[in-house]
Amino acid sequence: MKAFTYERATSVQQAVSMAASNPDARFIAGGTNLLDLMKLQIETPLHLIDINHVGLDKIEATDDGGLRIGAMVRNTALAADEHVRRDYSVLSRALVAGASGQLRNKATTAGNLLQRTRCPYFYDTNQPCNKRQPGSGCSAFGGFSRQHAVVGTSEACIATHPSDMAIAMRALDAKVETVKGDGTRRTIPIADFHRLPGDTPHIETNLERGEFITAVTLPAPIGGKQIYRKVRDRASYAFALVSIAAVVQPDGTGRFAIGGVAHKPWRMGEADAQLKAGAREAARAALADARPTEQNRYKLDLVERTLGAALAEAKG
């Protein structure tokens, strides 16, 4: 860990202006990922802006019948919220499938979106990694890649996005609300929030430097059976090999997003359209452009079978 300076912001405005005046600063909320990365010197911020005291910890109804989730709402609180459990149960289920109770008590809504990959080569500073050290190469490509991405990959990076929460949000068409250093606000659909690796895997979201997430909004409830199915080698406390967030309507139509297969929550409109035809058709449409490695080719089959499990559960 590199020595760093620290200050605490007590309002969003203050946090944003602190960030604008210090290009080496990072925001810290729950710190459940950033602190680990700092200890290993994968992240080396010289200045931390503590945003745990800026408020933004409420879940409120929006004018269009949806929900606005404050950026600082903890994962535990979000999963337990009665509106979320009633109207967006896929989100609640995704949250409790992730991490541990202790981590969920600290982790925030905005921080969860921004967590970084768990690729073991990213975590080992002796190894080349384009995400950690742009231009150094990708060690996972041709290496130990059993858990890596199969779709949307590039020569530069085959890492996955590790969040469960974000997969459910992608299925729900959430939007991310932000404020920039100059005070301008914008709303980013979650589909456009995370990036594919391309040639710049170190740039993981479309946030600008110093841009601050204030909330995530969910549109009005869409009903349907809401299912989150996470597949992993052990029963708890493991990142997904594959996960499916699905919302299935009584007529068999619906939508689904896939975790554990790409650099971002993976969802394809063509695949949603195939859902009524069955898991095989929908999974194949979602992964049509997949380029798996020898070690993670099984994920193609696993996505299909896991989606099958979700659809069976929706019927049952």
Binding site: S139, G143, F144, R234, A235
Partner: peptide, 24 residues
């Protein structure tokens, strides 16, 4: 997990080397 090109165990922490948890 052996990286046979670089000659080391890749999953060298308790996130990557999965021992049973209570739920198992």
């Amino acid at each position: 997990a052996v990286d046979e090109r670089r000659g080391f165990f890749v999953n060298h922490d308790l996130a990557g080397y999965e021992v049973p948890v209570h739920a198992d």
